[in-house]
């Protein structure tokens, strides 16, 4: 161990998903999928709509119970049976559907399930609003509508609320499922900036998209899914956008990528 070779001091993975499977009524939405995430790494999870990306990360976030497979956090086997368990491991998720409670305000949504309380055990709404103003200021400096039900906000504002909620609690592992879907170019740039910042803090990020252009510049590695299976993993610097497109569309793994169970058989 004395030879301080780069390979050897490489930190152990923050998250390892091993052979995860889940099916809904006989359809295998995720089939024997494995992937890993390092601290400070951004992994782009790509694939067509319906490839199983959201389902896979929902297993990690505790929203779905897997049928098979194991999850390791910091090298130790993790028990994740519900969203509370996942949060206890520092896993925060921005769901594709945003998953905000429409009828309560932004501050209440940010702290939902983890409300700040006064010494009397009552909700400390002012303190929560103050914190909400701080974190939203970082994401969307113009945002001022803290006391309105979230359903009155625009799509972009709702998305900012969902993102703010995920970064409020010092996540170690951040899952972003199509986080810029409802955002304009300026807000998308802000999210990209945020991802750089979080990466520097050593947070591991799963960045999910069906559009390769959203993730290619941000991701250190990409993993491609097709029909519930992993086509392959590749370092972004080793592959071109066209090659990744080939993985997404045809399931064809380029030579520099590590093929998964969903990779097309080389027939010729």
């Amino acid at each position: 161990m004395s030879t301080a070779n780069v390979q050897n001091i490489k930190a152990e993975p923050l998250v390892e998903l091993k052979n995860l499977s889940i099916s809904f009524g006989g359809i295998k939405a995720v089939d024997n999928a494995s992937m890993e995430l390092m601290p400070g790494e951004v992994v782009g999870l790509l694939g067509h709509n319906g490839a199983g990306k959201s389902t896979l990360i929902k297993i990690l976030s505790g929203a779905y119970k897997r049928d098979d497979g194991e999850i390791f956090i910091d090298g130790e086997k993790a028990t994740i049976n519900n969203p509370r368990d996942a949060k206890a491991y520092g896993i925060e998720t921005i769901y594709q559907t945003l998953a905000v409670a429409d009828n309560v305000d932004a501050a209440a949504n940010l702290y939902l399930g983890r409300e700040l309380q006064t010494s009397w055990g009552t909700l400390d709404d002012v303190a929560m609003e103050a914190e909400a103003r701080k974190v939203m200021g970082r994401l969307n400096p113009n945002f001022q509508r803290f006391k309105e039900p979230v359903k009155k906000l625009s799509g972009g504002q709702r998305q900012s609320v969902a993102i703010a909620r995920a970064i409020l609690f010092n996540a170690r592992i951040l899952i972003m499922d199509e986080p810029t879907a409802a955002l304009g170019p300026q807000e998308t740039a802000q999210v990209a900036e945020l991802i750089h910042q979080l990466k520097k803090e050593g947070i591991g990020i799963f960045l999910i998209s069906h559009d390769i252009h959203d993730v290619f510049d941000l991701a250190d590695r990409v993993t491609v899914m097709k029909n519930g299976q992993i086509v392959g993993h590749a370092k972004t610097e080793d592959v071109t956008k066209d090659e990744v497109l080939g993985m997404i569309i045809l399931g064809k793994c380029p030579t520099k990528a590590i093929p998964g169970p969903g990779a097309m058989e080389e027939s010729d």
């Binding site: 976030s61 929203a63 519900n82 969203p83 509370r84 949060k87 998720t93 769901y95 559907t97 945003l98 998953a99 905000v100 409670a101 429409d102 009828n103 309560v104 939902l112 399930g113 983890r114 039900p149």
Partner: peptide
């Protein structure tokens, strides 16, 4: 009441 699924996902 506003969104049962979101409440569950928020850990409630």
């Amino acid at each position: 009441g506003g969104n049962p699924e979101a409440a569950e996902l928020a850990g409630i």
